[in-house]
Simulated assay, not measured.
Amino acid sequence: MSSFDLTPPSDTQRHTIDAGLSDEERRVLLAHGTEAPFCGVFLDNKRDGVYVCRFCGLPLFRSGAKFDSGTGWPSFFQPYDPAHIRYLRDSSHGMERVEEVCARCGSHLGHVFPDGPPPTGQRHCLNSVSLGFVAKGDALPDPLRRGGAEAAGAD
Results as ranks from 00 to 15, higher is better:
W73Q: 04
D81C: 12
C102L: 06
Y80A: 15
M95I: 04
K66N: 03
S92W: 05
H84G: 14
A65S: 14
R104I: 00
G70H: 02
F76D: 01
P82S: 11
P119G: 08
C105E: 14
D90P: 07
P79N: 04
F67H: 07
G70R: 05
C105A: 11
R89T: 15
I85Q: 10
S69E: 08
G72L: 08
P118K: 15
L60V: 11
P82V: 13
M95R: 02
A83S: 15
C102E: 01
C102Y: 05
Q78E: 15
S69N: 13
S63M: 06
F113L: 08
T71E: 03
G70C: 04
M95D: 04
I85W: 08
P114V: 03
D90Y: 09
S92F: 02
L109I: 05
P59C: 09
P59E: 02
R89K: 11
G116W: 15
K66L: 01
G94N: 11
P114E: 05
S75E: 02
A65R: 12
F61Y: 02
R62H: 13
P79W: 03
L58K: 08
G106H: 07
K66A: 03
L60S: 11
D81M: 03
P114C: 02
P117F: 10
S91D: 14
C105W: 12
R97G: 09
S63N: 03
G70L: 02
L88V: 14
Y80I: 10
F113V: 09
G110I: 10
G70P: 05
R104H: 01
T120C: 12
H108M: 09
Y80E: 12
M95T: 02
S63C: 09
S91M: 15
T120S: 09
R97N: 10
L109T: 06
F76P: 00
D81S: 13
D68Q: 13
T120P: 14
T71A: 06
R97C: 11
P114G: 06
P114Q: 06
D90I: 14
G72P: 04
S63D: 00
G70D: 11
Y87R: 15
I85N: 11
Y87L: 15
T71L: 06
P117L: 12
D115V: 01
P74T: 10
G106A: 04
F67V: 06
M95G: 09
S75K: 01
E96Q: 08
P118N: 07
F77C: 13
P114M: 07
F67T: 11
P79Y: 02
P82F: 12
F113I: 04
V98K: 13
L58S: 01
Y87H: 15
F77V: 06
S92E: 11
D90T: 09
F61R: 01
F113T: 04
F113D: 00
F67P: 03
G116I: 13
T71S: 05
S107M: 07
F77K: 08
S69Y: 03
A83G: 12
G64P: 10
E96S: 08
Q78Y: 07
P119Q: 06
F61K: 03
S91V: 14
V112P: 06
P119L: 08
D115H: 00
R89D: 15
E96L: 10
R62P: 00
P59I: 06
E100Y: 07
G116F: 14
Y80G: 08
F67S: 05
G70W: 00
S107D: 07
H108T: 13
P74W: 08
G64V: 15
P82A: 15
A65Y: 00
P82Y: 11
E100L: 15
R62G: 01
L60I: 13
K66M: 01
